[in-house]
């Protein structure tokens, strides 16, 4: 039993990162109406900048900063493609575009980072924060979850309490109309892409040392992120965060149940299926086209 608890807690770091990535996905969807399949790839790009700089002997802190900046740049680059050419496209086309971009980014990423060539991923926050009921809580798990909570609160407040949030919501519903009434559409969308780029880069930096450290595997962390967003129905930040943590914890628990560990990758899929079945209660029309 204690083993199960320990492994569940061990999944908290990943869970927190999933939650954070999921909240970013919901943030992007609610503000610029894009289901972004490239989000984890954007974060991965930032993470590899950190790794490469760190390997070149640059101290951790400035390297992390450069990595975050790289995340912002990558996010803004994708954002420019989306706002320039696809601002008026329907949600399905936008999602298809991000899938296509993901294919390209992963190819470039694998090329630049040498494919499966091993890299050293620095553990940003190693060590234990505290012991609770005989179980270690690591700093990184507390940090990702804390960050997730902070970002969730921030996103919630921004969207529902501020004038900028109102503008952003108008932007996602009807970009053209929002532009006509004087909302700085381009600027705000790019801002959203930049912020989510930084946040995803940070989450990826924390979770990367625990994963197979190649560009592709890390980019595909978008799957648990979107699974978490689905639990929040692409609306609720809190449900998304909880969903992400849940996925991490379930993944962690598979490690103690004999023989299940190698199927860890199937956990997000099973959770997605469960959520879908639960959502089956009423047909929904695709947006009017």
């Amino acid at each position: 039993m204690n083993g199960l608890l320990t492994s569940a807690v061990a999944g908290l770091t990943a869970g927190g990162a999933y939650g954070l990535l999921g909240v970013c996905a919901v943030f992007t969807y609610r503000l610029v109406a894009v289901v972004n399949f490239t989000s984890a790839a954007i974060g991965t790009a930032g993470t590899f900048v950190l790794v490469v700089l760190n390997e070149a002997g640059i101290p951790l802190f400035p390297a992390v900063l450069c990595g975050l900046v790289a995340g912002v740049i990558a996010g803004v680059a994708i954002g420019l493609v989306m706002t320039k050419w696809f601002a008026e496209s329907n949600a399905s086309t936008k999602a298809a575009v991000t899938v296509a971009l993901l294919v390209g980014i992963v190819a470039i990423g694998l090329r630049l980072t040498g494919g499966q060539h091993p890299h050293h991923f620095p553990d940003l926050f190693s060590g234990s924060a505290m012991r609770l009921a005989g179980v270690e809580l690591t700093i990184s798990s507390l940090l990702t979850i804390g960050l997730g909570v902070a970002f969730t609160i921030l996103a919630d407040v921004l969207l529902s309490r501020t004038r900028m949030g109102l503008h952003l919501r108008a932007l996602s519903e009807r970009p053209m109309a929002a532009e006509l009434i004087g909302v700085p559409v381009q600027f705000l969308s790019i801002l959203v892409w930049g912020i989510t780029g930084a946040v995803t880069a940070f989450s990826l930096m924390i979770i990367a040392p625990q994963r197979s450290p190649d560009f592709m595997s890390l980019s595909l962390l978008v799957v648990p992120a979107l699974a978490a967003a689905l639990i929040g129905l692409f609306r609720s930040f809190w449900m998304t965060l909880i969903g992400g943590i849940l996925i991490g914890v379930v993944e962690g628990m598979t490690s103690v149940i004999g023989g299940l560990n190698q199927y860890r990758g199937a956990v997000p899929f099973l959770i997605i299926l469960a959520v879908m079945l639960w959502l089956q209660r009423g047909a929904r029309w695709d947006e009017a086209r």
């Binding site: 595909l220 899929f269 997605i272």
Partner: peptide
Amino acid sequence: RLRGINLAIVTLGFATA
């Protein structure tokens, strides 16, 4: 029965699994 994008997510999930 749900909106189209969910299929993209569930199929990608299946591919990972």
